[in-house]
Amino acid sequence: MAAHSSTKVIIAALVGNFAISVTKFAAGFFTGSSAMITEGVHSLVDTGNQLLLLYGLKKSARPADKSHPFGYGMELYFWAFLVAILVFALGAGISIYEGIQKTLSPHPVTNAYVNYLVLGVSIVFEFFVWRIAFREMMKTKGNRTLLNAVRESKDPTVFTVLFEDTAAMLGLITAFIGILLSQILDMPILDGIASIVIGLILAATALFLAYECKSLLTGESAMPETVDKIEAVLADEKSIMGTNELLTLHLGPQDVLVAVSLDFVNSLSAGEVEETVSRIEDRIVAVVPEAGRIFIEAQSLGRHRRHANGGAKPE
């Protein structure tokens, strides 16, 4: 279900950005507006980004093999990180460059009504796509703030599209204001300044996305509520004296690795320990369906502490 939702968000953004980019470029070359051409570049880069995210979803869905025994889920994080770099290098870089060129050699915008029409339609469509991504994010928000939901999200496709479209709407509004003021005040330089501002908006968005994707690439644990569910299962198990350590790692948006070190009741036989391990695994999967790999280690608390402190000392 999550993968389907991500695909829906990306395809909606892909179709919209491609159509809008063609319209923006046509309007920009027809009217001579630097801000409009910049917006065309922005939408074209976003179109390429959505293609990369779709490619990342497809690659990450490959089954595990000998070279990648835990699967390819984290490959999606790489492609999302690459998208952030492209937003910064292409979107922000070209926008700022175009803006500087226009401020150094300003020229008036002609037939500005064409730009206003294109920008107005673009804002409406970008809002439609943004709302789709926003609704998908709200489904996983819970009681957290939106920013915390993004920070803790394990699916980079949804929050990448959400922030891309947020930056897109801010860029469209900036372009509209820049063109309008350049006409009202008879200051063509303001059109170029608007392009620079759009570039700065994209740069800030790209840096935020890169930071969030970097965190996923380097290995993030499951969300606190997921860990709480696993801890509740372990606390309810009468055959263990305590949990030495519980580790979780997201191998993909819907793939969590769980590693547990347990101190079992000493009176249990080897067969009873095996039965207990199987029961615990089943109960964990029941409350955390995304727990695709569960490793349970039987170890005394004292031995675990010695290992944690650098290994067991010879007697």
Rank of each mutant, 00 (worst) to 15 (best):
A12W: 08
G16P: 05
I20H: 10
I20N: 11
V22H: 04
V22G: 05
T23Y: 12
T23C: 08
F29K: 14
F30S: 10
T31S: 08
G32L: 10
S33Q: 14
S34E: 11
G40Q: 07
V41I: 09
T47P: 09
L52D: 06
L52R: 11
L52F: 06
L53E: 11
G56T: 08
A61Y: 15
Y72L: 08
G73F: 02
E75T: 00
L76V: 05
L76G: 10
Y77L: 08
F78I: 01
L82N: 09
L86S: 09
L86N: 06
G91A: 08
G91K: 00
A92C: 11
A92P: 05
G93M: 08
S95I: 02
I96E: 02
E98C: 03
G99A: 13
I100Q: 00
I100W: 07
K102S: 07
S105F: 13
P106A: 15
H107D: 03
Y113H: 14
N115H: 05
N115Q: 07
L119G: 09
G120D: 12
V121G: 02
V121R: 00
V124A: 03
E126Q: 04
V129D: 06
W130H: 12
W130F: 15
R131W: 10
I132P: 02
I132E: 06
A133G: 03
F134R: 10
E136A: 00
E136N: 04
M138D: 14
K141T: 09
N148Y: 03
R151S: 05
K154D: 15
D155K: 01
P156C: 13
V161H: 11
F163T: 04
E164R: 04
E164Q: 06
D165S: 11
T166W: 04
L172R: 02
T174E: 07
A175Y: 01
F176D: 00
F176A: 07
F176R: 00
G178L: 00
Q183W: 13
M187K: 12
M187V: 01
I189H: 07
L190C: 10
G192L: 02
A194C: 03
S195Y: 01
I198G: 09
G199E: 06
I201L: 00
L207A: 12
L209E: 02
Y211Q: 11
E212R: 13
L217Q: 07
T218V: 11
E220M: 01
E220Q: 14
S221R: 06
A222N: 02
E225G: 15
E225L: 03
V227D: 13
K229N: 07
A232L: 09
A235W: 06
D236R: 00
E237R: 06
E237Q: 14
K238W: 09
S239N: 15
I240L: 10
T243I: 06
T243K: 07
N244Q: 03
E245A: 14
E245W: 13
L246E: 14
L246H: 10
D255M: 12
D255T: 09
L257N: 08
A259I: 01
S261K: 02
L262K: 11
F264H: 03
F264C: 14
S267L: 04
L268R: 14
S269K: 15
E272A: 09
T276I: 14
R279K: 13
E281F: 08
D282P: 05
I284T: 15
V285G: 08
V285C: 12
P289G: 04
G292Y: 06
G292W: 03
I294N: 01
I294G: 15
F295Y: 03
Q299R: 02
Q299D: 14
L301T: 13
G302Y: 07
N309S: 11
G310W: 14
